[in-house]
């Protein structure tokens, strides 16, 4: 059995579950905080028969925007958290200054974790892209605010860029190159 696939399957479960949970939590928050009028509808012809309907367009837009924002904050904060951990673990392995700083701040046990892998960070950033695509689709169908989609797209691009830069540093540690110091 491939170790990579096994790890991928293991890492993918949490973000997939959080994606759905944060969507539901966002709708629950919007309905309770703004006291929105909604009802549930069953449509047997759909894959998921249960659907949430609001009684007017403004309420649906508000609930959709809040649930999208909740989803974005949840996934992006965890993606950034794993990205920072991964980057610090790579920099600590290469740069003694970073190592000393982390040691002084007593952050070494947090950084020196076997779970700080490229694969885990990659999975979270992939989910960040999935969130961005969902949000862009929602904006195109006029079901969500534009600024949330722009924010998610920018977060996904910056995170991907940071991941690639960190991965390049890791590559330089394994296969040293003369201009390695330019990488970070």
């Amino acid at each position: 059995m491939s170790k990579l696939l096994r790890k991928l399957l293991q890492y993918i479960i949490l973000p997939a579950a959080l994606l759905v949970v944060s969507r539901v939590a966002g709708i629950y928050f919007a309905v309770n905080f703004f006291n929105l009028d909604f009802f549930l509808e069953t449509q047997p012809e759909q894959i998921y028969s249960l659907q949430i309907y609001f009684t007017n367009q403004a309420d649906a837009l508000l609930a959709s925007s809040i649930s999208n924002l909740t989803m974005l904050i949840t996934i992006s904060s965890l993606a950034v958290y794993y990205l920072i951990k991964y980057r610090l673990s790579i920099l600590a392995a290469y740069n003694p200054k970073v190592l000393v700083k982390l040691n002084n701040l007593n952050l070494m046990p947090w950084v020196n974790n076997k779970n700080n892998t490229f694969l885990k960070t990659f999975v979270w950033i992939t989910f960040l892209w999935i969130v961005s695509i969902i949000l862009i689709a929602d904006v195109l169908s006029q079901d969500s605010s534009l600024w949330i989609a722009i924010l998610s797209f920018l977060t996904a691009i910056i995170s991907t860029w940071a991941l690639i830069r960190t991965f390049e540093i890791e590559g330089e540690i394994i296969y040293p190159h003369s201009k390695v110091s330019n990488l970070y």
Partner: peptide, 9 residues
């Protein structure tokens, strides 16, 4: 699931 749970009207 996320698509199905999007608020509609």
């Amino acid at each position: 699931a996320v698509d199905s749970l999007s608020p509609r009207t």
